[in-house]
Amino acid sequence: MRVVAAVLAVIWLAPLAWALDTALKPESETTRIPVSWFVSGMSLDAFGRVFADGQVLAWLGNSLLVGVAVTVLTVAVTSLAAYGLSRTRFRGRSLVLALLVAGIMVPPQVLIVPLFAEIVGLGLADTYWALVLPQVVLPAMVYVLKRFFDGVPRELEEAAVIDGAGRLRVYWSLMLPLARPALAAVAIFTFVTTWNNFLWPFVAVSDPHLMTFPVGLTTVQSSYGVRYAQVLAAALLGGLPLVALFLAFQRQLVTAIKG
């Protein structure tokens, strides 16, 4: 069993190892036949050139900006909505709940064409707004948080209300702290999804300066011909932050993805 596991792990890591190996080779060695794992002159040069070029860093910066913005907005609006739906009754509440369930059914892929038309109509094409706002709509997150709030005993809240705290106060200083694990799960899930999202950012912006990392990496080319070591160095550089994050936050991530 242990051998099988080890073999499978090696097979699974091999593509990454090979990419790293290529990224460390001098450009002239990358396409040599027969293939060799160890050549002379292995160095970090390709990574250095990626840094010096700056474009990949700018895309990573965009990814970070968009990822953080989407995550913060999502956590804010979904937790507010979840609290409202869980703890208050208002006219149209059942309509909103029905809309939520219906929204979970809509695959974002079927929206890309009309959404692009809408973004163009609003004059938002090729802006950060176009990258951020449509990605904030995650009805499933409202649902997850609502179920969490539903599970919080009402007595806790009633005590606070008797003390004269308003609804917003209760939400902010009582419910949010209680919901920290659930919110962390929502935040991590949202960030990972946004960071790796390809299709909508690919449609939303054409300006290479606004592209997120996954889009820029495949859309923009080097004018100086294909440089495999450099391309793979860029790919690894952009791919590794999340893997590192996984190592750091393994447990929370597992909860998030299970949720």
Binding site: V120, A125, S206
Partner: peptide, 8 residues
């Protein structure tokens, strides 16, 4: 798409 978006 860039031209349609107006910020080409």
């Amino acid at each position: 798409m860039a031209a349609a978006g107006g910020r080409a």
